[in-house]
């Protein structure tokens, strides 16, 4: 267990410089989008009231309150989130391939470590999960800071302040990643973890069988996806027999079974088939 912790720490530290850069990019673009918005609103206020002589009430009737809700739904605010999500997705692949294809063949060292090889699999998986949790926590922590920019520039009469929870509820992807109830949390992260396990297994199939492995991995991945979505096929055949909730639970059960099979398969590949 101690060695597993060291493995996770080692994997996390390898990505840390890129991760810090990524978080900085997320913050800077989000801050820029807030600054852009608040100065736009401020100039609208100035123009409407000073130049056109509108009252505060008339302005608010026409434009509404300035609020983080308007920023959170903008394209510019979503952009860094998409960048971060894509980076982490690429890293799910990179976290394995860099050990084979990097300048020095580090996979030799990893496979020779005195730990069960499946621990390499789990340490990389836990690292990905930590990166996602870290990103979500960072985003939640940054929201009140961004609202401070709004508060500093827009007068209190023209703005609507939100609580952090209110902002989290306004941001679609945070609503998904930080659902209000525990069951949704388990389901959302369960599907996410199952997806990462599936990708890891596909990578290990390719690394074990190389050229042949590309087709085998594709077959495995497509097969798994068909299985996960099979309840919907069943729904069509049985003419809407199931409730949506039942379909979701069926999918979740299939994803769990597939994850367990994938972990056993990965363990077998790491112990018996993998090549440096």
């Amino acid at each position: 267990m101690k060695l597993f912790g060291k493995l996770v720490n080692f994997e996390f530290m390898r990505f840390l410089p890129i991760y810090i850069t990524l978080l900085a990019v997320v913050f800077l673009i989000e801050a820029a989008s807030v600054i852009f918005y608040v100065f736009m609103v401020k100039s609208e206020i100035t123009e409407s009231i000073v130049k056109h002589g509108l009252s505060k009430e008339q302005f608010l009737q026409d434009n509404g309150y300035a609020s983080m809700v308007n920023i959170l739904s903008s394209f510019m605010f979503s952009l860094p989130i998409v960048i971060a999500a894509v980076t982490i997705f690429i890293y799910i692949l990179f976290i394995w391939y860099r050990d084979w294809l990097g300048k020095n063949t580090f996979i030799y060292r990893l496979l020779m470590l005195p730990v069960k090889r499946i621990q390499l699999f789990f340490s990389k998986g836990v690292t990905i999960l930590m990166l996602v949790f870290g990103l979500v926590a960072f985003q939640v922590a940054v929201l009140p800071v961004l609202q401070v920019i709004l508060k500093l520039i827009i007068p209190v009469d023209y703005r609507l302040d939100l609580t952090t929870q209110g902002m989290v509820r306004s941001l679609y992807y945070l609503r998904f990643l930080l659902p209000e109830n525990f069951i949704d949390f388990i389901i959302n992260y369960g599907f996410g973890i199952a997806f990462v396990i599936l990708l890891f297994t596909m990578i290990l199939i390719e690394r074990s069988y190389r050229f042949r492995g590309v087709f085998m991995a594709a077959f495995y991945g497509i097969g798994a996806l068909i299985l996960v979505f099979s309840p919907y096929i069943l729904q069509v055949i049985m003419k809407d027999y199931f409730y949506d909730n039942e379909l979701l639970w069926m999918q979740f059960a299939i994803a769990i079974v597939l994850s367990i099979i994938s972990v056993f398969l990965s363990n077998h590949l790491l112990n018996r088939k993998i090549r440096v």
């Binding site: 060291k6 080692f10 020095n104 030799y108 060292r109 020779m112 470590l113 005195p114």
Partner: peptide
């Protein structure tokens, strides 16, 4: 095993490699 390829990360210093080995072995 001492392979004919370098198996340590390029950015590591020798002392980092020592620490890595000490941590795991």
């Amino acid at each position: 095993y001492i392979p004919d390829a370098m198996t340590l990360l390029p950015k590591m210093r020798i002392k980092d490699a020592f620490q890595f080995m000490k941590d795991f072995y």
